[in-house]
């Protein structure tokens, strides 16, 4: 009994290790996509796009591991919650990889375009969501509910940046129709980053569930209404991007 239990615990640890590897890999995809966009680096963008196959492969492999553990070990309680959490979290991590690819594609589309202003808020958003992802994964490994709380708090900051950028880009498009093409691309990138943050919040919520056994929405701000466009424009000041 003890030996089989020990083997199972080792398999659970390995499962978490694989998830952590996948998370770190996708985090680097996101970082590279952001850098490719800011630095007009087409090669880096292509590298990011190519990396998605590996992320997808990791996703399938971890899911297979989970299915095997469910079938052979019939886990209960905390073990069951851990495996259920990993299965759910890989879907969110995989989506972060997909958004990184979308950002890399935008980088390729904008490679020959000179930005009408140096990018500021988008690199900031990349940095915040990247840190959120890292913290969420750390929270999972360390079963740290304080880190979960911090991740969820940061989502509000990402949302604020997204609403601000949206207002500014809309205003710039009205004032300078010649930059509409790049403004639309940047608007989409900002939207992708806002969605990445939401997926990271999902991960954090799952970590909390794994630890407490309570399934609940911890980031009710998701449900809150976005500020009206007039409000966003009102305090926008000069267009940033």
């Amino acid at each position: 009994m003890r030996r089989t239990r020990q083997a199972f615990e080792e398999q659970l640890e390995q499962l978490e290790r694989h998830l952590l590897e996948m998370g770190t890999f996708v985090e680097s995809m996101l970082e590279k996509a952001g850098r490719a966009l800011c630095q007009h680096d087409v090669n880096l963008a292509r590298e990011t796009i190519a990396a998605d196959d590996t992320a997808d492969q990791m996703d399938l492999q971890i899911e297979q591991e989970c299915m095997r553990l469910l079938a052979l070990q019939q886990p209960m309680s905390r073990d069951l919650r851990t495996i259920g959490t990993v299965m759910k979290v890989i879907a969110d991590v995989e989506r972060v990889g997909d958004y990184s690819v979308d950002i890399a594609r935008a980088a390729i589309d904008l490679a020959e375009t000179e930005y009408y202003k140096p990018l500021e808020d988008i690199p900031r958003m990349v940095e915040i969501v990247r840190r959120m992802l890292r913290q969420a994964l750390e929270a999972l490994v360390a079963r740290d509910l304080e880190l979960v709380r911090q991740v969820i708090e940061k989502d509000d900051e990402v949302d604020r940046l997204w609403y601000k950028l949206r207002g500014q880009l809309e205003q710039t498009m009205r004032e300078r129709p010649e930059i509409v093409q790049q403004a639309v691309a940047l608007l989409l990138v900002a939207r992708y980053l806002e969605r990445v943050a939401d997926h990271v919040v999902n991960i954090a919520e799952r970590v909390a569930y794994m630890e407490t056994g309570r399934l609940e929405v911890l980031a009710p701000s998701h449900l809150a209404e976005a500020p009206s466009r007039a409000d966003a424009e009102g305090d926008s000041g000069p267009a940033q991007e």
Binding site: M1, T4, R5, F8, P75, M76, S77, R78, D79, L80, R81, T212, G213, R214
Partner: peptide, 17 residues
């Protein structure tokens, strides 16, 4: 009881510890 037992001893038992 099987998803989220409240007592550590129940948790150990249902997890086969």
């Amino acid at each position: 009881i099987f998803e989220n037992p409240k007592d550590q001893r129940t948790d150990d038992y249902v997890r086969g510890r």
